[in-house]
Computed example of a mutant assay.
Amino acid sequence: MPTTPDLIARYYAAFNAKDWAAMAACVSETINHFVNEGDKRGGRAAFADFIAHMDDCYDETLTDIVVMASPDGTRASAEFIVNGVYKKTDAGLPPATGQTYRLPAGAFFDVKDGEITRVTTYYNLKEWIRQVS
């Protein structure tokens, strides 16, 4: 079984490789996914739907990723920089015209039996809107 930092690193490596199946394989079938400024999504299928939607609207790469984990490996966090292109207008947000953005973000995780059971992501939405407007 991978260590929690290895699991989180694999999760973000899959994100950067746009390997959505590998990313989904890191999460529990019953994951609780809390999206910044959004509703909770429950389950791997809802998580995969969210990732597909994000891929449709945004092209993002994460850099400067730092992962921290509790000694028992049940909780972790990650801080990173989101480098993105806003490629398709997302509902309720400014029109997309290929704008680029760069902003710090973070995520918190619960881990059980080598799988991510919760991920909560945070970033400054007002700053993102300022950059793409």
Rank of each mutant, 00 (worst) to 15 (best):
residue 15 F to R: 03
residue 15 F to S: 05
residue 15 F to M: 08
residue 16 N to A: 04
residue 17 A to M: 12
residue 17 A to N: 11
residue 17 A to F: 08
residue 17 A to V: 14
residue 21 A to E: 14
residue 21 A to T: 11
residue 24 A to Q: 03
residue 25 A to V: 11
residue 25 A to C: 05
residue 26 C to L: 04
residue 27 V to L: 05
residue 30 T to P: 05
residue 31 I to A: 03
residue 33 H to C: 10
residue 38 G to S: 00
residue 39 D to Y: 07
residue 39 D to Q: 05
residue 40 K to E: 15
residue 42 G to S: 12
residue 44 R to K: 08
residue 44 R to E: 02
residue 44 R to V: 04
residue 46 A to P: 05
residue 47 F to A: 01
residue 49 D to M: 07
residue 50 F to Q: 08
residue 52 A to N: 08
residue 52 A to W: 03
residue 53 H to M: 14
residue 54 M to P: 09
residue 55 D to C: 09
residue 58 Y to W: 15
residue 59 D to E: 14
residue 59 D to K: 13
residue 60 E to G: 10
residue 62 L to A: 05
residue 64 D to W: 12
residue 64 D to V: 10
residue 64 D to Q: 13
residue 66 V to Y: 12
residue 67 V to N: 05
residue 67 V to D: 01
residue 69 A to C: 08
residue 70 S to N: 09
residue 72 D to W: 03
residue 77 S to T: 00
residue 79 E to C: 10
residue 81 I to N: 05
residue 82 V to S: 13
residue 84 G to T: 07
residue 86 Y to C: 08
residue 87 K to W: 10
residue 87 K to F: 13
residue 88 K to T: 12
residue 89 T to P: 05
residue 91 A to P: 08
residue 93 L to N: 06
residue 93 L to Y: 15
residue 94 P to R: 10
residue 97 T to D: 07
residue 98 G to Q: 09
residue 98 G to W: 11
